[in-house]
């Protein structure tokens, strides 16, 4: 399966996290929020202005900016 950026995932679609390309405190924060490789996330919606995005993972809703989502590699 091809690896893509989380931003490529369409609204309503699910994807599996493969790798974090983020670094430093952003990476730490993403890990703490449960975005570890292997976990499934669903892209729930995009904000009215087109950014940020809302994800659902581990039974809760998380929002991140697209520039942050672009640093998460996923498999659709």
């Amino acid at each position: 399966m091809a690896t893509e950026k989380l931003t490529e995932v369409k609204i309503g679609q699910k994807a599996k996290i493969v790798k974090l390309l983020a670094e430093g405190s952003l990476k730490k924060r993403l890990l703490d929020m449960g975005l570890v490789p292997g976990v499934q996330v669903k892209v729930e919606r995009v904000a009215p202005f087109g950014d940020p995005v809302e994800l659902v993972l581990r039974g809760y809703a998380l929002s991140l900016r697209k520039e942050e989502a672009a640093l998460v590699a996923v498999e659709i």
Partner: peptide
Amino acid sequence: ESAHFVMELP
């Protein structure tokens, strides 16, 4: 300074 948005929607 780093700043990120990553935020829960409770």
